[in-house]
């Protein structure tokens, strides 16, 4: 499973314009919906907010991975956004979040969700990759950064 298989340019936004966690979740969800209008926005947004209530998805190191499991979703959808100034998301290390990855999972595919979350959270533990992402000015650089990293570390 490669993150680059799920990243596409329409679902990458640099910089993010919203300045709250909820706002950014909505902003990233809109990116996915612009490509996949068949997704029920209300339902997806509700599931994402409900997931945040269980425990924060701001996992530290300036990274947040808001995500949700949604019934009858065709596949996994991913959106990425960079907040240049960072947003206070009550992350586990107390740092502001700059890198946001919003993911929608089909509810029935628990194994795929586990693998995807494990892969992306492990990738983002790497300081070099995070530093590269902080400096990205457009979607191509983001996709390139992930591509290079995954090719190097996950043959």
């Amino acid at each position: 499973m490669r993150i680059t298989d799920y990243l596409n340019k329409e679902c990458i936004k640099i910089p993010l314009s919203k300045t709250t966690k909820k706002g950014i979740i909505e902003e990233l969800l809109e990116l996915i919906l612009s490509v996949h209008p068949e997704i029920d926005k209300e339902k997806a947004f509700h599931c994402l907010i409900e997931r945040e209530k269980i425990e924060t998805t701001a996992i530290g190191d300036y990274v947040a991975i808001p995500h949700a499991r949604i019934k009858n979703l065709a596949k996994i959808y991913l959106a990425f956004g960079l907040s240049e100034n960072g947003i206070n998301c009550h992350s586990i290390d107390g740092e502001c979040v700059k890198l946001f990855f919003l993911i929608l999972f089909p509810e029935e595919e628990i194994n795929a969700q586990l693998k995807f979350l494990a892969r992306i959270s492990r990738l983002l533990k790497d300081k070099n990759l995070r530093t590269k992402l902080f400096k990205c000015k457009d979607h191509e650089k983001v996709i390139d950064a992930f591509k290079q990293y995954e090719e190097h570390h996950f043959q």
């Binding site: 997931r51 269980i54 425990e55 924060t56 998805t57 996992i59 991975i65 995500h67 949700a68 499991r69 586990i92 628990i110 969700q113 586990l114 979350l117 959270s121």
Partner: peptide, 15 residues
């Protein structure tokens, strides 16, 4: 352990 001790997997608690 995954669903209770690692925050990113907390959404799988119900599963």
């Amino acid at each position: 352990v995954i669903s209770h001790d690692i925050p990113i997997f907390a959404g799988l608690r119900d599963a």
